[in-house]
């Protein structure tokens, strides 16, 4: 005979254990990555999107609040900051390789960083979105690890910021082939920079399919875009 009282207590101990949240995160990510590979890397099955969906479903199912889930996996969130620091490495390596196109690249990325923020903020205010939302949208062209901490810095919401970055990046595999058909790029540097500026990491994966050079320029544009936006955005918003 099962003792219902004891069962309930044991279940609470299980769900309340800090490793439970970590296990859920690992398991959701592993399943999402499996699905992504099985569907031939179909963009809408991006591992982050699917794992967040799965995780929210499980949180609801076991009755764990987001707050207590987050507390239990906070160490993973700190490691996100470590990845942000590590972005210096690809940035350093691509800057070192960049010989001929130095000024065009720097000028284009700096002005695009300012322009991207201006456009999204202006559009968001135009359709009447509230200020916290505007601030969460402002970082949508910045690679996610930087966007998350930057959003907290300027008073946006980090979760929304991460979601908006992800949605923006998902536009790349859908629309970039079409854009390149209408406006053919003069060389891979042009395509790479435009993709990296507008669609960061997922865009860079797309750019790598075009050519290695295109991917390298996209990766450079993505990391430059992130650090430049981080430098000026807190002064303006």
């Amino acid at each position: 005979m099962i003792d219902l009282g004891k069962l309930q207590i044991a279940n609470q101990v299980l769900v309340g254990h800090p490793l439970f949240g970590i296990l859920m995160t690992f398991a959701c990510f592993q399943s999402a990555r499996f699905l992504f590979e099985k569907t031939g890397r179909f963009p809408l099955f991006h591992p982050l999107l699917v794992s967040v969906g799965l995780l929210i479903f499980f949180l609801d199912f076991v009755g764990l609040s987001y707050r207590s889930y987050f507390d239990s996996v906070e160490v993973l969130h700190w490691l996100l900051g470590t990845v942000t620091v590590a972005l210096a490495i690809p940035l350093y390596e691509s800057l070192r390789k960049l010989r001929t196109m130095f000024f065009p690249v720097i000028i284009t990325v700096v002005s695009s960083a300012a322009f991207a923020v201006f456009v999204v903020v202006a559009l968001a205010r135009f359709v009447g979105l509230d200020e916290q939302l505007v601030k969460s949208l402002a970082t949508k062209s910045v690679t996610t690890p930087i966007a998350v901490s930057l959003s907290e810095e300027i008073g946006g919401n980090a979760a929304l910021a991460a979601l908006f970055v992800l949605i923006t990046a998902l536009f790349a595999p859908i629309f970039v082939p079409l854009l390149l058909k209408i406006f053919p790029a003069k060389n891979d540097a042009v395509a790479g920079i435009a993709i990296g500026v507008s669609a960061h990491a997922i865009g860079t994966a797309k750019a790598l399919e075009i050519s290695r050079e295109c991917g390298a320029f996209s990766a450079l544009a993505m990391s430059l875009m992130g650090v430049i936006t981080a430098l000026f955005l807190p002064w303006f918003l």
Partner: peptide
């Protein structure tokens, strides 16, 4: 990296 982004992104739950 995508896995490390799960904790914060799951915050869209409340939105």
């Amino acid at each position: 990296l995508p896995m490390l982004l799960i904790p914060i992104t799951a915050g869209i739950y409340s939105w």
